[in-house]
Design a protein around this nucleic acid. Sequence first.
DNA 1: CTGAAAGCGCTTACAG
DNA 2: CTGAAAGCGCTTACAG
Lengths: 357, 357
Amino acid sequence: MSSQPTIKDVARLSGVSIGTVDRVLHNRGKVSEQNMRSVQNAIEALGYRPSRIARALVSRKSNFKIGVCIPRVEAEFWAEAVNGVEVAREKLQPFGVEVLLEVIGSYHFADQKDALLRLLAQGANALILTPVQGQESRLDQLIPPEIPYATVVEDIPNSRRLFHVGPDDHAMGLLAGRLALLYNGPGIQCGVLAANQRFYGTQERIRGFSDFLRENDPGGRILSLCEIPLENERMGYQKIYEITEQQMEQHPNLNLLYVTNGLTQWAAAAVKSHKKQGAIRVLGFERTEMTCSFIQEGIICATVCQGPGQQWYSAVNIMNEYLAGDRAIDNPVFNAECRILIKESLPFVKFNSISDM
Amino acid sequence: MSSQPTIKDVARLSGVSIGTVDRVLHNRGKVSEQNMRSVQNAIEALGYRPSRIARALVSRKSNFKIGVCIPRVEAEFWAEAVNGVEVAREKLQPFGVEVLLEVIGSYHFADQKDALLRLLAQGANALILTPVQGQESRLDQLIPPEIPYATVVEDIPNSRRLFHVGPDDHAMGLLAGRLALLYNGPGIQCGVLAANQRFYGTQERIRGFSDFLRENDPGGRILSLCEIPLENERMGYQKIYEITEQQMEQHPNLNLLYVTNGLTQWAAAAVKSHKKQGAIRVLGFERTEMTCSFIQEGIICATVCQGPGQQWYSAVNIMNEYLAGDRAIDNPVFNAECRILIKESLPFVKFNSISDM
DNA sequence: CTGAAAGCGCTTACAG
DNA sequence: CTGAAAGCGCTTACAG
């Protein structure tokens, strides 16, 4: 009973006003040594913990804006990201936190730059973004030093970004390698289709995959590594289609296509329309509706999914706690969970599940 | 600007007092048709949504108690469940919700009954539990009809339980079958070690597994189905050890042990101490520290993990929303996410991750 | 350095 | 049927 002690209880016990307790709570100084101590004792004795609810109610007006920039190229993948941001916005809205969202349609730095400037113009106190390739270093100059920013999905290790939320791409590559071996058996003859090769993550996924093969499939070979230019999803689709055709001609012994990102479904479509299912397995990343049905059909054997919604949700929350002073960022890299999508795990991998903690 | 509209804005726009707005909001009746309508219009026009924060602050005293009963037999598995409950408690505490936790040390109905009565005696307004085997039907009599209750992990379909949170056990069995085939290759000769066979879930996991084999591995056979009595984890360990020895003697061609629950690690220990790794693969469920190291060593090839912490966290939250009138239970079964644990996915499956939504 | 007052948005008695 | 007041636990000016 008596439920939780309140600031009033602390004030009463230590014989001061609640104003003074508040000052102690927030280290606002201007408190005599003596009162300081007796308040601290009272807090200790009562096990007092300030109510986040009351705090939130008060600070309803005086709150921050978190600006978010998402490059929506692969449509479904980034739609999940947007969803994660919206769930976070919903959650934080009652606390007076505004989440400003800018969706851009490309991986061009110029577009991202414009979006970020718009967010800053709207008064964003912090930014969260997936950096587009090649120009990462410019962000430190673009974003004023007093504005903290964080990265999601793709990191910029040598920048002043406050933290990063994303998968361990090398480990994802290793996992993909294992799945390839399990489904294909030894002797993998593999074509690698790499979109966004300039992304650090893409390279790591390739490295992990080939590390695994080297270690575990002595007869396996990577026959070719093809870059897929990716201005927009449609272009990715067309290119992958062409290149898959090329690869099948050039390498009659090809038995696996490894696609480094969410374009996996389009490689599968190309394989299917050339009636190569059975002969060529497709293995890749992420979850889309089409990916799921290709897995169901057996054209895609497996994908590794990183849950962009979850990542963005976490990133917005972490940034909010940081701004509120509730969280120190000790380790700036938060590794995302990944899931294995195969035919029998389809019922278990939820689409838009978002996770706290 | 103007951020969110408040109850005051609604009152002003509709020309009534905030008391009346409140009455409309909660259908407390006693409002004239005319005011009713103008308030509703104002709400609509402003896009007003009541602040959960303010609501929580007010209702700090007059709130409910949710009683939870967890049978802690397999230690690590249920420790996760306890953790999930505690995270939920932490989250709901500021809203004035008390979470009462009773941990029992067995799967005996008598113990569970005592625990539930204790929870009721403490004034629980709702109960959440994992029903122990065989006596499920008695719960409807034990728990007063005005107290809603929910099940987690194991369901009681034909009871008045309000809802159930748990995995799809049959689908888990199918998934385990796929993993068996991937790791072993065709020609599975399998011993099934079934703890808690009276649990509905255990049977479903066996059925799913054998359904998969029948369909996909014509040369595969289930050589035996052994019940493991499970009074406590220690006993489970000893029994599994004995039975594994027996099985290995009786079936020299045995190449796989399928363990239907979190005792998987003990079967692996038995295999290891008989130096049968390589010859006999172990496949099972859940994640414990020891399970992870056996996966790392290659003795356990894979497990399917259901995340008990997540399930309990969700169940407590759902019950809270139900009690608060914030959620109608339309579909009473919430299927839990499951993850595939293999050597290469170890870095991705977080131990105590808890998820909202 | 300290306290009393007002107010965050809502609900709950209490008068009319 | 309706409104005004008090209060949930905290923070933020404002006087001293």
